[in-house]
């Protein structure tokens, strides 16, 4: 899968928001709030091909957690991204 084009990550206090800034995004006011971990993963895979495995490995490398825990963390995140329509 791939991240869709036209989004930009904006820091906001201790959180992040992903905002639709490109003309290619249909819903011009779309906005998704993310915590630091989700924002880190988004930026790491932005514009590249990736899957759940890629994200889990990124978590292992960045936070030193084991791969099984990482996979469990990634599943709901990917569901959120899919539901928000920001990946395809």
């Amino acid at each position: 899968m791939k991240t869709k084009k036209g989004y930009r990550m904006r820091p906001l206090g201790k959180e992040y928001i992903l905002v639709a800034e490109g003309l290619e995004v249909e819903n011009a006011n779309q906005m998704i709030s993310m915590n630091a971990t989700a924002a880190f993963l988004w930026e790491a895979v932005e514009g590249k091909d990736f899957d759940a495995e890629t994200l889990a490995q990124l978590l292992v490398d960045e936070y030193g957690i084991d791969i099984e825990t990482a996979k469990k963390d990634v599943t709901p995140l990917l569901q959120t991204w899919e539901k928000a329509g920001i990946i395809n």
Partner: peptide, 30 residues
Amino acid sequence: LVEAYAAMYVSFSGYRFIKDMADGLHATNE
């Protein structure tokens, strides 16, 4: 903070595909 940002975000206009305009609007809103 996020709710306030979002409420403001839809209450002003600008061409966000123009990067420096989007950057300016974001910085002010924040």
